[in-house]
Design a protein around this nucleic acid. Structure first.
Length: 895
RNA sequence: GGGCGAAUAGCUCAGCUGGUUCAGAGCGCCUGCCUUACACGCAGGAUGUCGGGGGUUCGAAUCCCUCUUCGCCCACCA
């Protein structure tokens, strides 16, 4: 690491090497970087799916977590970021099934054991690829604690949880209508169904009365389900139909007799006011069926084809073919009354988008209300804090309306349900067990385990404690539970975040974290979510390759404010990431300049020894940059703490680029080069302020800050910025006077530069400047930084006082100090008159409106005194400035 | 159907508790510069009815109402 630094920052040359060094040093593990007495700070990484490939959403999510964990680590906490992967039941099974399909096979061809082995092989091969990718963007997670939701330990936790909840009466098996995906061939929870509004139809079908005395019209969006109708329901108070209650319908096509029943669930105002009742295919109908002891006829196969329960000619038809056929037959029989357009919400599988079919089946459920109550209380009493706050309302609303959680899945990949059935006729016991059963505890006969597996979220909702060893009482669990912050996409608030809170409270007696930061979504410029299917994604690794991890991270962090979406342009990576790349390069070159100039005598800025730099040795510029640095420390620290990462990034960016590089480094050059005395002071100040800036920036841009920081002279080989102490604001650095005075210096330089540009003065051409009307402090400041001013404004001479010359460029600084740049023949007097004229007009308008404001009795009497005083100050400054310019115009002889 | 959010420069967005960082930043654009840290740079510059309308207030990008447009979440009216 001692080779000379290249003028162009080349991230790929340092990133992987640094990352490897960090991990070798164990810097990401609290065991090695922090004393045991330090307060822990814990983040649980949302485990990516094993089959996942890093996309920008992961990039954003993990960058935020990494910024926070690095920040807290530097602040001295025992920072632990636990990474892991999720076995992702349906998603992973789908991937492997697709693979098999390429070979013309289905999972049934392989059989359960061989299929599961095949999935394991796939997972072993590609399962942790995404974690490797996270390393490429710099994630400082503790890889020694990486978990997988199908690990032995986590599997034990899952089983313990299931059994315990069962013992507590909170897990039960039930025969209900659940959401069924006919493609994945499994039940889904309510949360796994995505509702989508679609334009559908409402078919009005005529059901003849059994005695041929007429008909009753029912309205339905799914005519094919009529094959399973077992009643027609009307509202008990509906006068139109009251006389029909208890009579029979002859169900067309199926040719069955079904009763007309009365039920409160029917809305007389909708459709015809009569509802066909299909208990096997609709949740409401199922309830009606229960109340009226109606039979359930399941007319669909798991694949959503018409089953053997329907007349022959429908059997085997796909549900939509069946729909057309049913409608056609009703039409042919003159029983199709009418068809209406009807917009309604239809559920889709969150994994494959297939339309969900409500289906009657036996499933396992978790009784959620008892778990939800404490989770809601933790929000209401302020234990939980959401960022942004409004997300808390979504959380509360979901908990208030919570429904039982269907946790069984008809898949092969996942945690097998720990339930064993005895099929012996005389025994038939069902056993829920922590350990695998060989024989029935009742009759010692053979048992068979439940075929189903558990919802993948049933393992991930435990990770805040299962990943730390629960149900064992491990030291990790004692130290790192509960954690602190959860960073997540809002999409998984219910799937994961809320459920972790419930499980944490139930099994550990404490919420797993108190701060819940829900960030936005990464979208393209059309505000569409980035997705593989749309092909509008940006590969974070490509960005890392082209611009570096720090550029990626900085661009994400700075382009994101609390809870808002991040918009990136997949068609123009340059536009999306130039800011980060440019900044990294700027930083690199500032560092290159500073580090190569640190050789030479220097003395400490603070400390006990007598060699320390005295305050009176500091120039105005020194005091200014130290004060600016201190203000930036306060600003950035506050912003990081409040999760306002973009503000923290902007504060440091501005300090480094606009203050340190544009002004201070320029100011300090003569001293560093030995052209002016005070090189030791300059070295101390530039080194200190830059070093502080690097630390402030490290959470957001870890690689480049580490690379530069380690190159500081005298740095021990083992030192890492990642565990360097966080900069503290220092009251001694505060210096409002220096901020104001150096501000005038900057204004003066800028004013001269603007005049030079305005009149096309050649870049190499020196000019003179005359300053008049400066206050004592202003004059003192300009004198102190005279050499800075003359150099940066390219002045041959800077004089204070009046001059007889009239022709040149004019400007007035914010404190009323006048600047005059004599330009002799070079200047177009008319042009300068015009320029001054518009400026006088502008100030005139300001003065006018300000006088209006201050002349307003209401304002003066009702606004706070300090506001009024400030406004008076403004008025007098503007008046002074206008005055000066008016005089200049007179001197120039402007008309 | 219910709830929520957003609309500010050509683009992406800051602007938090009404009043000194109040109209800003980055990218893009224009002009001039290869000034020995950086052309991924330096210096200077242009660009806005703060979505429309109404209101509260001495004062509104900021608070309230309303409309328009976009987005999100929730929902068993078949």
């Amino acid at each position: 690491m001692t080779e000379p630094l290249a003028p162009q920052y080349n991230p790929s040359a340092i990133e992987s090497e640094l990352y490897q060094w960090w991990t070798e040093q164990g810097l990401f593990s609290p065991d090695s970087h922090a004393p045991g007495s330090a307060q822990p700070y814990v983040i649980m990484m949302p485990p990516p799916n094993v089959t996942a490939v890093l996309h920008m959403g992961h990039g954003l999510n993990n960058t935020i977590q990494d910024v926070l964990i690095r920040f807290e680590r530097m602040r001295g906490r025992r920072a632990l970021w636990v990474p892991g992967t999720d076995h992702a039941g349906i998603a992973t099974q789908n991937v492997v099934e697709r693979e098999l399909a390429q070979e013309g096979l289905t999972r049934f061809d392989l059989g359960r054991d061989a299929f599961v082995e095949r999935v394991w092989a796939h997972v072993r091969e590609t399962g942790s690829a995404i974690l490797e990718q996270l390393k490429a963007i710099g994630c400082a997670a503790d890889w020694s604690r990486t978990y997988f939701t199908l690990d032995e330990g986590l599997s034990r936790a899952v089983r313990e949880t299931f059994v315990r909840l069962h013992e507590q009466g909170l897990v039960y098996r039930g025969h209900y209508i659940i959401n069924w995906c006919p493609r994945c061939l499994t039940a889904l929870s309510n949360e796994e169904v995505e509702k989508e509004e679609v334009d559908g139809k409402l078919w009005h079908l005529r059901y003849p009365l059994a005695d041929d005395s007429g008909h009753l019209t029912v309205a339905t969006t799914r005519p094919e389900t009529m094959l399973g109708d077992t009643a027609v329901a009307v509202h008990p108070d509906d006068d139109r139909y009251r006389h029909l209650i208890g009579r029979q319908i002859r169900l067309p096509l199926a040719d069955r007799l079904i009763p007309i029943v009365a039920d409160d669930a029917v809305d007389p105002a909708f459709g015809s006011g009569a509802v066909k009742v299909t208990p096997a295919h609709d949740p409401t109908d199922f309830e009606i069926g229960r109340r009226h002891s109606l039979p359930s006829i399941d007319v669909m196969t798991p694949e959503a084809r018409i089953s053997l329960a329907a007349p022959d000619r429908f059997q085997g038809l796909d549900r939509y073919e069946a729909r057309r056929r049913v409608v056609a037959e009703f039409d042919a029989a003159g029983l199709l009354e009418r068809v209406e357009d009807h917009r309604h919400a239809v559920g889709h599988c969150y994994r494959c988008e297939t339309v969900i079919e409500p289906r009657l089946s036996d499933q396992w459920f978790v009784r959620m209300e008892p778990l939800a109550r404490p989770a809601l209380a933790a929000y209401r009493d302020g234990t939980l804090r959401f960022v942004p706050e409004r997300r808390g309302d979504d959380y509360a609303a979901w908990l208030e309306g919570i429904r039982d959680w269907c946790i069984s899945r008809q898949l092969w990949w996942g945690h097998r349900i720990p339930v064993w059935y005895c099929d012996a006729a005389k025994c038939g016991v069902t056993t829920v067990s922590r350990t695998d059963l060989e024989r029935c505890p009742g009759c010692r006969g053979p048992v068979r385990q439940d075929e189903d597996v558990l919802d993948t979220w049933f393992s991930s909702w435990l990770v805040p404690f299962s990943s730390l060893g629960w149900p064992e009482r491990t030291p990790d669990l004692a130290t790192f539970y509960p954690g602190n912050t959860l960073v997540s996409a809002p999409e998984i608030l219910f799937f994961w975040v809320a459920r972790m809170i419930m499980s944490g409270l139930h099994f550990m007696g404490a919420v797993p974290y108190t701060d819940i930061y829900l960030h936005g979504t990464v979208r393209d410029t059309l505000h569409r979510k980035m997705s593989k299917s749309l092909g509008n994604g940006i590969d974070p690794l490509e960005v890392v390759q082209r611009y570096g991890a720090d550029a990626l991270r900085y661009s994400l962090v700075s382009g994101m404010s609390v809870g808002t979406d991040v918009i990136l342009d997949p068609a123009d990576l340059e536009a999306s990431f130039a800011a980060g790349r440019n900044f990294a390069n700027k930083l690199w070159n500032a560092g290159r300049f500073i580090l190569t100039n640190l050789e030479g005598p220097t003395r400490p800025l603070a400390g006990r020894n007598s060699d320390v730099i005295r305050r009176d040795e500091l120039t105005l510029a020194d005091r200014w940059i130290i004060a600016r640095c201190d203000a930036t420390v306060a600003e950035a620290t506050e912003a990081y703490q409040r999760f306002r990462l973009n503000e923290a990034a902007a504060a440091v960016y501005h300090f480094i680029w606009s203050d340190l590089a544009d002004w201070y480094i320029e100011q300090v050059k003569p001293r560093l080069y030995g052209d002016l005395p005070g090189g030791d002071v300059a070295r101390a100040v530039v080194a200190q302020t830059f070093e502080v800036a690097l630390r402030l920036l490290h959470p957001a841009m870890p690689f480049i800050t580490e690379a530069l920081w380690r190159r500081f002279p005298g740095r021990p080989e083992s030192a890492s910025i990642s565990v360097a102490p966080w900069p503290a604001a220092d009251a001694r650095a505060r210096d409002p006077e220096a901020l104001r005075q150096f501000g005038l210096v900057q204004e003066l330089v800028s004013a001269v530069r603007a005049i030079r540009a305005e009149y096309g003065v050649q870049p190499g051409q020196m000019v003179r400047a005359v300053v008049s009307g400066a206050s004592q402090t202003a004059a003192a400041a300009l004198k102190q930084e005279r050499s800075t001013i003359t150099r940066l404004a390219k002045l041959s001479e800077l004089s204070l006082g009046e001059t007889a010359e009239r022709v040149g460029g004019h400007a007035v600084l914010s404190d009323g100090t006048a600047v005059f740049v004599p330009l002799g023949d070079a200047i177009d007097v008319g042009r300068e008159c015009g320029r001054l004229g518009t400026e006088v007009d502008r100030l005139g308008k300001l003065v006018e409106s300000q006088e209006g404001k201050l002349g307003n009795e209401q304002f003066v009497s009702r606004a706070p005194a300090d506001v009024v005083e400030r406004e008076r100050q403004k008025l007098s400054t503007w008046k002074d400035q206008r005055e000066v310019l008016v005089k200049k115009r007179e001197l120039l002889g402007c008309s």
